[in-house]
Amino acid sequence: MKSNKRTEKVYVYRSYERFWHWSQALLMILLMVTGFEIHGSISFFGFEYAVSIHSTAAIILVILTVFTIFWHLSTGEWRQYIPTRQNIKAQLHYYVFGIFEDAPHPFRKTKLSKLNPLQKLVYASLKVIIIPLMIVTGLAYLYYRYPHYNKIAHLNIAGLEVIALLHTFGAFLLVAFFLAHLYLMTTGETVTSNLKAMITGYEELEADEKKEVINEIITESPEVISEKETLS
């Protein structure tokens, strides 16, 4: 595979993105373990510690999310997640058949377009549906009784059941995503290339004749592109 294609080292994931990714990963794993302990499925930290770890990790994650939304907006990176109908079939076809035939990836990863169409779809629905669901139900779970304390009776919620069940529902989907994500990580050019990229920021990408020039500019200075967008 490596033999005849021209590849080059591209700075794909910037430092904030990597920081966000890994701290989110750590928080998510903590939330998963403690969450399912609170749910009664497993026993690890003990209920009391599980609750305090879960609550603290959740607050940190919300803060991280606020910063990350800001980062996405300010860098224009949010456009990466705009889902597209194009090539979804091709990507699916690759995972189901092509990957076994050693067919090339139908999607060419570049600095400007890091996500394949399936990723775009899944990440967009995570960001628009599942994560907001988890944050809203999670905050309600944490604070639903406190307004009552301050005599704001109309904010009082009669019970936890609906909140808790929605939160659990979202949690199951996130676990499934987490598993799939871990596995699909190994489906890059080599088994570890995606992982390396998310750690170092750099990835060996197939050189694109047309975009080569732009890539070089970005590799030299990551800020250029966002400035260009800001100007436009």
Partner: peptide, 21 residues
């Protein structure tokens, strides 16, 4: 008569979740 975390769960949601995973 109320939802107690750690004790209560919805069999439907848990079944769905177990299935997805």
């Amino acid at each position: 008569d109320f939802y107690l975390p750690g004790r209560d769960y919805s069999p439907a949601v848990d079944m769905f979740g177990a299935g997805v995973i």
